[in-house]
Design a protein around this nucleic acid. Sequence first.
DNA 1: GAATTGGCGTTATATTATAACAGTACACTT
DNA 2: AAGTGTACTGTTATAATATAACGCCAATTC
Lengths: 167, 167
Amino acid sequence: MHTQANAFNSDAFNTSHNHEHCVNAALLSAKTLCRDRGQRLTPVRELVLRLIWQSHQPLGAYELLPQLAEAGFNSAPPTVYRALDFLQELGLIHRIASMNAFIGCSHPDEAHPNAFMICRECKSAAELDTAELKSALSAAAGALGFQIEQESVELMGLCQHCREAAK
Amino acid sequence: MHTQANAFNSDAFNTSHNHEHCVNAALLSAKTLCRDRGQRLTPVRELVLRLIWQSHQPLGAYELLPQLAEAGFNSAPPTVYRALDFLQELGLIHRIASMNAFIGCSHPDEAHPNAFMICRECKSAAELDTAELKSALSAAAGALGFQIEQESVELMGLCQHCREAAK
DNA sequence: GAATTGGCGTTATATTATAACAGTACACTT
DNA sequence: AAGTGTACTGTTATAATATAACGCCAATTC
């Protein structure tokens, strides 16, 4: 599971992998995390997490609502936003501000900056490996005396797959 | 003027400087840019640019509306959004997605990533110098075959000024 | 088993952004 | 200077995203 997590979800741009595996890994990881922190992964929360993970594309809150309704849950905005907030606080999903959308986090157990590449063609988003990035950010900010508490990096462009397809 | 621009607006965290000077520099730069590109810096556009530049804190579209009204302009959302879009396209302002707000760009004449530090205490935002950052981003993305077209970096934290004040 | 807490249902509303169309000013041609 | 096209603005309406507030129920604690 951890090997997969460390792939930093670059597989997101490769739609051919067995994604059900990823979803299950994420759910397992969520359950562990909740148990450790004395939090509850309730049915709504679990469903929201599953829906978000199932998609390689960031999903908007209002895209989730009909799917909640289908599953028999209340489908008013507060329900889904609460679940999203909860999952974010646990680091299980990230919000992509430039898209008003949410995507699964591929390594919730490690502290890390929120850093994504988003393909304008296929709309997939993949998390960046940020070891070096983080130090570059710290250096740049530190030079100006700024103390970083939270990072958000969103790169728009073309993924390898779509670049090749465009040729 | 250019010296000031190259300071990358780190002065934003220092509210004591003569900010009217910055605003005027920005307006001048805007006029030049518009002339070069055959675009018009109309009164609404100029006012919006001025209002945004006057503030060290990112301003939301709806915060601008009453000020437009005061100046005798139409103050419906489309008016301000049109001006904001125009100014963004010319690189004169940036949108900070995580805040749904806009801030003046301190070096509109150079191509550069959208990269800001935002202080959670004083809400000021300052543009990052991104030469090294840019190469770190390119390296990280390139390793995964991703071709960057547009960057957005938003760092939240504490600016030097507020950090010292907190001690 | 009473009290407390956390989570959800529900209604209403706030906030941010855009669509669509009509009118006006400007720039260009002749 | 009149005609013509284009870019800009005014205006109304509405879409899209997000939160406030309150009450109920279930689980947990004492």
